[in-house]
Design a protein around this nucleic acid. Structure first.
Lengths: 252, 252
DNA sequence: GTGTTTATCGTCAGGAAGACGACTATGATC
DNA sequence: GATCATAGTCGTCTTCCTGACGATAAACAC
């Protein structure tokens, strides 16, 4: 299908971000409050235009840094600083998804360890970490029973897709470690799985599984008691990215 | 990040298609020959502009129908006609991927049963099914040793991503049946797995696995000897979409 | 010291998968 | 028509992984 460069339908291209973290035993997403119409005052996912000289991944990384200060892990770098995992999620281009014009949004998924506090271009009151069930508002009410306005645009769909991607991807990859600080214990990693999947896991079987998977975890030698109880060994993420056999998400 | 609708960078948005099928025991992709510069005369993936009033999935389905005559399966419809599976793959937006202008391409992956012959807008000489190893030209040479020009634009990357998606997705979903005609035998399904993964599978273990997975296959009652040998039962694809536990791809 | 919490090791039974033997029902060939 | 080659189908055996769960270890709070 040849085409004429001077004659194409005009589109705007944006990146939207699903930034997930685990706080207080629940899976949370970054949300920003819209300051303008449409959907003024409603919560939305962070995002913005792709610049003319910019790759899609670069645009997503730039937006992520602007909103959270996080830099993106270089997959080549073995030891991790305070970086986040970033990957393309999906692209949303319904003709009516933005009432003003035709906007195609390339959504990205970012996974980050628990962060001090969000900043939305310096304005913290317009950004927050919210539990995903609250943002998705299955029943239309938040955790305290207050009514919750749905996310702007089609962002509820995007968030749901991002959460589903994260839930399935930690099954067969070592990505759950992206939710953890550079050094973490087996119990902390287990609480990540429990929060993301919303289930309880047997600590003994989980310990056997993760410590028995080659390349998943490497002991640092240190221990910590920051979770209380008996001191636990500290680990770093190993080089393995694919878990074979995978972690099994309990039925129902 | 509020933005002004009247002031955004101009992008062209296209859909490109990775259309895969299994022919003569090998995984093949649809390729079309470019009639114009740039990359004139080179092979490329089929694709085209998204129209102003069109969803991304609609645009992909339209291109698929134009190139192959295939219609897309309605996931709700139980019994299958000659439709194909279609899903979004990924989006490619490097600033330099098209030398003429900034083009963002939303690639889609289609899986189809073996088809009679391709048609490229009615011109069959400019479209063909080619084994993916040949199109990806790992060594720069085709199966008869002739030099192979790489695919146009970044289409080799897109094709590689599509093939990898197909390879991994048939592990944990019933998607391999999308490569089969409406009624097929266990052996035919096994040959699909063997072609896509490029490995040999044990017929007995494969038979036990697929017939023992609830909802994967439903017997039609008929038999066929079209593969030679003892008559084999015919099956249709069952309602199950996710295989749990998954099919295991043999190590290396 | 006692109780609580978390971490870690061990045991056992059930299920799934790889390796592979055996038998069956066709068409092709002599 | 007997023989052979080809595919399909059913079983067996061993090994590995998982879920359920008992038991011990090492910290802290009182």
């Amino acid at each position: 299908m040849p085409y004429d460069p001077s004659d194409f339908p005009p589109f705007a291209v944006t990146v939207d971000l699903v930034v997930l973290t685990v706080r207080r035993h629940s899976l949370c997403s970054l949300a920003v409050r819209r300051g303008e119409s449409p959907f003024k005052g409603r919560w939305a996912l962070p995002g913005g235009f792709v610049r003319p000289d910019e790759d899609l991944a670069q645009a997503a990384a730039r937006e992520l840094a602007e909103e959270t200060g996080l830099c993106v892990h270089d997959p080549a770098a073995p030891a991790q600083d305070n970086g986040a995992h970033l990957e393309q999620l999906a692209t949303y281009g319904d003709p009516g998804r933005d009432p003003r014009m035709r906007v195609v949004s390339v959504a990205h998924l970012a996974l980050a360890p628990d962060l001090p506090a969000p900043r939305a271009g310096g304005d913290a009151s317009n950004a927050r970490w919210a539990p995903v069930e609250e943002l998705l508002g299955q029943n239309g009410y938040g955790r305290e029973g207050e009514p919750v306005a749905p996310l702007a645009f089609d962002h509820a769909q995007i968030l749901a897709d991002g959460v589903e991607r994260a839930r399935s991807k930690i099954e067969y990859s070592s990505l759950a470690t992206a939710f953890c600080p550079p050094e973490f214990t087996v119990g902390e990693l287990r609480r990540v799985y429990e929060a993301v999947w919303g289930v309880a896991l047997d600590p003994r079987n989980f310990h056997r599984k993760v410590t028995g998977t080659p390349g998943f975890l490497v002991p640092t030698g240190g221990t910590t008691t920051r979770q209380g109880g008996r001191p636990a060994q500290l680990f770093r993420a190993g080089g393995a990215t694919l878990l074979n056999p995978p972690m099994l998400r309990p039925e129902v």
